[in-house]
Design a protein around this nucleic acid. Structure first.
Lengths: 236, 236
DNA sequence: TATTCTGGTTCATTAATTATACCAGATATT
DNA sequence: AATATCTGGTATAATTAATGAACCAGAATA
């Protein structure tokens, strides 16, 4: 039989053999960059973080030390661990999707419609009361931050991510996460016009109500309108 | 300052602490399912695979033992390691990538429907004659490889990727790419039984015709049926 | 015939990670 | 004011994963 392997044959070795500490670093950076940990915020105590992340304290502390030297966190003895301000932290540069220039706002909105509208239907089916409660809290948070645009947009994003998560379909969540960079991009452009926060907020309220009432059709319709508005406000 | 963490706070721990052996298993399965290793084929010698995959021989052999008990390979002393024909055996959860434990075949198929059906509509609108020609070539390649399952599945996958690409929406393509690992595994997962290639091929032919004739509705309907069949064949 | 290849096996070593325990200052509770 | 509990800081023993090197015996090759 033929042998077509030799020592130069490439099999793309990526066995992912990083130390656990590094993975802790990445995880925390992810949590910070997605706004789940906010600047100035106090992190859970080490012993609790261990449990949450599923590593031992020694390993965790190794990762935390790296994060401190990166300027992402500040560890204060006998007090806690704090996320440092954005201005001071040197987060690795966010890498945008490769062919970023070839994407239009219409494409982004289209893709969002395609993924999010069916997600609403699933969310109505599979969402728990707890889910709906959390979703409602996000609405409240949006109301409380109408004057703080960046934070408002963060909650806006959270709202939509939450809907997809409520579908309980991890494949869908993965797909949506993969395009979240594009969404942020679209937010930047759609948020140019101030004063539209109330309008957006209103849509979110209605969408929330529809999901709470298990009215998938209505929810989908509202979401479609909401996304259409984004395109319109950009075009003008 | 307020403390809003307690032991029930979810931080989504996925520190990816699987043994290297399992990762070897996953890697090889991926190589098989993408047609880079074909059935009956002889794998590189263990000592070379170690180098390629970047693991020690002991670790590699641990993974190979698992692969053999899964029926994916056959190890022949003093001869070599061979890829077996697909067994009926389903892949146990532990060999699936970390996230897979929370994913069902239904989830995968659902997500595919959600993304691919609207893609067909866009493909009918935006696909060029060149695109359709390439898509047609893929059909031919599938016809030529009905007896070589891994290669057949490779073209099957290509066909679907191509449709999404024809939407000319890079955001959608990104989302679809992000879940392609799920799709590849699902192919092994659902392990097409003999004789079903023709059926699948037939669906692809019809879908191709629909797209060529710019009949989006028909195309979507066919695709939905095709994906339904996958679920059915697994359930039984 | 001699060499080189194959998978099969064993074992000592290294490194990563865990699990415990204790410290001392800060904070909250009683 | 006294006490209990929380915080990060530190040290250490035990466990486990993974490596690397050696050697075997049958088979293929030169």
């Amino acid at each position: 039989m033929f042998i077509w392997y030799n020592k130069y044959t490439r099999l793309e070795n990526d066995m992912d053999k990083d130390l656990l500490g590094i993975k802790v670093v990445r995880k925390v950076i992810l949590l910070v960059s997605t706004g789940q940990f906010k600047q100035g915020q106090k992190l859970p105590a080490e012993r609790m973080l261990c449990e949450k992340l599923g590593v031992s304290r020694g390993t965790l502390r190794q990762g935390l030390a790296d994060l401190q030297s990166l300027g992402v966190i500040k560890i204060v003895p006998r007090s806690g661990i704090y996320i440092k301000k954005y201005s001071e932290k040197k987060l690795p540069q966010k890498v945008l999707p490769p062919n970023f220039k070839d994407v239009s706002l219409e494409d982004i909105i289209n893709a969002r419609k395609i993924i999010e509208i069916p997600s609403i239907e699933l969310a109505c089916k599979k969402g728990t009361k707890e889910d709906i409660k959390v979703l409602g809290n996000t609405i409240v948070k949006m109301e409380n931050t109408v004057d703080d645009l960046p934070e408002f947009l963060q909650y806006d994003m959270n709202f939509h991510q939450m809907i997809v998560a409520m579908s309980k379909n991890l494949v869908l969540v993965t797909a949506f996460e993969a395009i979240s960079d594009y969404l942020k991009y679209s937010q930047v452009y759609s948020s140019i016009h101030e004063g539209e926060e109330e309008k957006a907020l209103n849509y979110h309220r209605k969408i929330f109500n529809a999901i709470r009432d298990k009215n998938a059709k209505q929810g989908g319709k509202l979401l479609e309108q909401h996304l259409e508005e984004i395109v319109k406000s950009y075009k003008f």
